[in-house]
Amino acid sequence: MLNGILLLKDIGFADEEMFNANIDGKTWEFRRGILTFNFSAVHAEFLVENITLYFFVSSRKKLAIVQISCIIRKNTIKEEDRIHMITLKSDREIQAMEESGAILAGIHEELRGFIKPGLTTMEVNNFVQARIEVAGAICEQIGFEGYEYATCTSVNDEICHGFPGKYVLKDGDLIKVDTVVNYNGAMSDSCWSYVVGEATPEVKRLMEVTEKALYLGIEQAKPGNRVGDIGHAIQTYVEGEGFSVVREFIGHGIGPTMHESPSIPHYGDAGKGLRLKEGMTITIEPMVNTGVWKSKMDDNGWTARTKDGGLSCQFEHTIAITKDGAKVLTQQK
């Protein structure tokens, strides 16, 4: 257990791929702007004095990972750099999240029969909100950074964060329904894609590839692997099938709040990035496009859609990293 002040200096603030620094007789790895410490900590703070970083660490009993995210260039550090805490969940906490996830999975199961031509996206939203509230849970998205709805309902070329509204679903539409459930303080997050009426061959294949990509990513979510292993598995498969992976929007840690560290890109290099630890809870949520991966933003400041007007599909699960691998907490029947 570490307690006190760690001094990190003279590490050569160059744009190198990776280097090591010796702190208190231990070697720590620095890779692509991410410096990761493994210790028992309640908080950590850092300040910058020229090119010297001072880390102040306070101890606590529960093991956590403190990830200090820094974009470092010679003699500079961005103001927005900040500390991210990644909490490792106990079996009890994971069980609570699984109970939350069961509510969410059940709602997605119901949506299979509910979504049909003629419904508005607001009616879909209201259906989900009612189901969450009947279960005694909270629609966690409402009020998040000013967001007003229980769901994101993104149709066709909308990648994510589509506002529910007056749009009337028609045969062949591809709708993505994303929501977050807070059940007694335990979070679960899942987006699922649905075809309205009959699917065209293009939509059917896009959905099949996206869902398989999700599970290929989940297979890599195990202790000892790195975040890059998840993204690499997804990206190589998707691009090999002739589609593209969205890069502007990614997965994330979850619990105790809706969005936590670490970030989980759906692209990247195998063997790179943060090492995965037992007890982490994250979302994996690849967004896959028929055309280019780039997006453009609607005037509402929330809704992202494909830059070229192509279709976009998404599937998402909340998972826990266990000693046996990934445990899906939002698994549908």
Rank of each mutant, 00 (worst) to 15 (best):
Y183F: 15
S190A: 15
W192H: 13
V177I: 14
G217L: 05
A186H: 05
K204E: 13
T179F: 15
V180W: 05
L174D: 04
M187E: 05
G197P: 02
Y194C: 03
M187K: 11
L214D: 06
T210F: 05
T210D: 01
V177L: 05
N184V: 04
L214V: 09
S193W: 00
C191N: 13
G197L: 08
T210N: 10
V180F: 09
S188D: 00
W192P: 00
G185C: 10
M207G: 06
K204D: 11
A213Y: 00
M207F: 02
W192E: 14
T210I: 01
K176Y: 00
V196T: 07
C191A: 15
G197A: 07
S193P: 03
G217P: 07
I175F: 05
N184S: 14
K212W: 03
K212C: 09
D189T: 11
E208Q: 14
M207K: 11
V181I: 15
V181N: 00
R205H: 13
E211A: 11
E202V: 12
T210Q: 08
L174Y: 03
Y194L: 02
G197T: 08
K204T: 10
L206C: 04
V196I: 10
E198C: 11
V196W: 00
D173K: 01
D178H: 13
N184F: 12
L174Q: 03
T210K: 03
M187W: 00
G172F: 00
T200K: 09
T179H: 15
D173I: 02
S190I: 10
V177A: 05
Y215N: 07
L206D: 03
L174H: 05
D189W: 10
L206G: 04
L216F: 10
L216Q: 10
S190Q: 15
G185Q: 07
T210H: 06
V203A: 09
V196P: 02
D189G: 08
R205V: 11
C191P: 00
E202Q: 14
D178S: 15
D189E: 13
W192G: 12
C191L: 11
K176Q: 13
E198V: 14
V203N: 04
V180L: 11
L206H: 03
E211D: 13
G172C: 06
K204I: 03
G172A: 09
Y215D: 05
R205W: 02
M207L: 15
Y183S: 13
C191G: 12
Y215W: 13
D189M: 07
T200C: 06
